[in-house]
Design a protein around this nucleic acid. Structure first.
Lengths: 177, 177
DNA sequence: GTCTATATCAAGATAGAC
DNA sequence: GTCTATCTTGATATAGAC
């Protein structure tokens, strides 16, 4: 919260998000972001010294939001973190899902900057026990990721009805089979 | 099979594949591809008029290979196409899987050129019935895609043991639960 | 310390020579 | 049908204004 900073990092991230939402990750350029955020290109680069830094920052913000959403459902609900995560994925806006998937894809080449994301996923995979229940819940987790990515990457279009049906099945598998 | 064409399209695709395999999709440039294939940059661009066309061609070739693999397992095995596909994914080389996932990601912005891929996935989703068995098999399909993408995109590292265990569970879910 | 303006360089794409 | 020369855009580095 430094008093000195007059450029608003969040405003830049908002602008970048808007561009991705409207035109896709391929259109994300410093020129566009700068224009949209009302900052000079150099100013953007001062805050985010490379494109992968910018993308990593967007991803980190989204990841935090998503984790907060999961935590809130976890606290409200029955104490099942996996169920909270599945429900959060189910309800996530299409815009946020598309952004998440394309950011994941964009981070592919970014190496170290994707670490928080990798740690999150590795943690989930390690959280399942080796017994029948743990393995069943791991399948539910993977199915949730599978449909999330297929939709987010634009590989399949899924209407609300199919989406709800699939998540009902995933929840069922996580809960009991 | 045009007699006139002296540039070997497959040789260009081989070169592009080699680059992605060694250095990642981010290093794929026309200059590198041309040098590696022993053709001029213009020659490459004559065959593949844009980068997304080149990527789509790589993807289409990989998709054909994969479908052939599935078909061969389907013919040899017990007549279960889903099982054939799950097994083919399980056994797919890490190199091909990484390429497949990063090509999917790269095709994100390519619009129409990803159509064959979309059609393939949509066909799979539509192939499952609405009864308990169909829905269970759909979950197995999605879990298979989930782990495939998470590994292919480099989001999680999975050793052979974990990989085999997961696919054993996926096969079990597809077969009976 | 924070930011703007400008320079540089790589890479996708095009036009036209051969 | 293929290749060379060239254009254009976007990512990044630098110089210096405030």
């Amino acid at each position: 919260m430094g008093r000195k900073r007059t450029i608003d990092r969040d405003a830049i991230l908002d602008a970048a998000e808007a561009i991705i939402g409207e035109a896709g990750a391929g259109q994300l350029t410093f020129d566009l972001v700068a224009a949209r955020a009302g900052v000079s290109k150099g100013g953007v680069l001062y805050c985010f010294p490379s494109k992968s830094a910018l993308i990593a920052a967007m991803m980190e913000r989204d990841l935090k939001r998503f984790e907060a959403e999961v935590a809130s459902r976890f606290d409200a609900g029955g104490g099942d973190r996996l169920k909270a995560r599945i429900d959060a994925t189910h309800d996530e806006s299409e815009a946020m899902a598309a952004r998440a998937a394309s950011l994941m894809a964009a981070l592919l080449e970014a190496g170290d900057e994707a670490e928080p994301l990798r740690a999150d996923y590795r943690g989930w995979l390690d959280s399942f026990g080796d017994d029948a229940e743990g393995r069943r819940r791991r399948l539910a987790f993977l199915a949730c990721e599978g449909i999330f990515m297929l939709r987010g990457l634009g590989i399949v279009n899924i209407d609300a009805e199919e989406w709800d049906a699939i998540f009902a099945d995933i929840s069922g598998l996580a809960a009991d089979s």
